[in-house]
Design a binder for these strands. Structure first.
Lengths: 108, 108
DNA sequence: TTTACTATTCGACATGTTTCGAACTATAGA
DNA sequence: TCTATAGTTCGAAACATGTCGAATAGTAAA
C-alpha cells in the first residue's frame, strides 16, 4: 500500500537522523500534536519554533540548529521562517513511508 | 495499541543501527521472507546465515560481523549458532514496536 | 537607526564509526 | 588428529559526528 517512493539512501539518511537522542526527542515533540484528551488540528498544532523545540534539551542553540538541519536534510521535517521565528513540522508523506517500511509483511 | 514497552534509548540505538547502508541492506534481506507470489512460513524462511547475509555486500567478513553485532546489540535481530554456521533473524516484537512508533497518531 | 530577539554559520576539538587484514575460535568431517 | 569451513576479535587508520562559543544574519519594534 506504499505509493510514495523512497529509496534506500534516503531511508538510511532518515534512520541516521533519528539515531541520536536529541534528534529523536525533537522528532517526538514534533509528532505529538496535542495534550491528553484534547482534539487538535494536524496541520496547525504540530508546528513548533526552533526555540520551543530546544526547551529542556540542554544543548547550545548552535547544536540545536545543526540537529534541525540534519532532520531537514534527511527529509523528516519541513522548516519555514515566520517573522522572527523559524517553525518546524514533520513532513507527512515521509512519516507514512517509514510506517510502511515496518508494517509491510514482505519487502524486497 | 502498543503493548511492548520500548524506551527512547533503545529506540535511538535501533535507528542508529539502521542508519547505515550496509546494515539497512542486511535488515531488509532479513525482513524479506519469500519470493514474489509465494507463501512462506515466517519463523523459518526469514533466517539467514552470516555468510548469506554478506553476499553481494562487498565488505570484509570482519566488517560484516561488526555490523551484525550492532544490529543485535540494538535489539533488532537475534542470532544463534547452528553447527558451523550462525543464523540470524529479525526480533519480531521489536519490529512491531518500530511500526507502532510511526503509525501512532499521537505520541508523548 | 538602534536595540532586542531568534536562529544560523564557522572553526575547533573530542569522541565515535567504518573499514580492513591478521590472528584467533568453533564446528564438522576425513 | 588434521583440515576445511564459518565467524569473531583485535588493532590501526581514515573518516564522520556532536558539541561548544564566537561571530554573523534576519526580523520586528522602539
Amino acid at each position: 500500500m506504499s505509493n510514495s517512493k523512497i529509496d534506500d539512501d534516503q531511508l538510511t539518511e532518515m534512520f541516521k537522523a533519528l539515531g541520536n537522542t536529541h534528534r529523536l526527542m525533537i522528532f517526538k515533540r514534533l509528532s505529538s500534536c496535542c495534550q491528553p484528551g484534547t482534539q487538535c488540528d494536524l496541520e496547525q498544532a504540530m508546528a513548533y519554533s526552533v526555540g520551543e523545540l530546544g526547551e529542556g534539551l540542554d544543548i547550545a542553540s548552535s547544536t540545536l540548529s545543526h540537529h534541525l538541519k540534519e532532520l531537514h536534510r534527511s527529509g523528516l521535517i519541513e522548516m519555514e521562517r515566520q517573522g522572527k521565528r523559524v517553525v518546524c513540522w514533520i513532513a507527512p508523506e515521509t512519516l507514512n513511508s517509514l510506517g510502511d517500511f515496518f508494517n509491510a509483511d514482505i519487502k524486497r
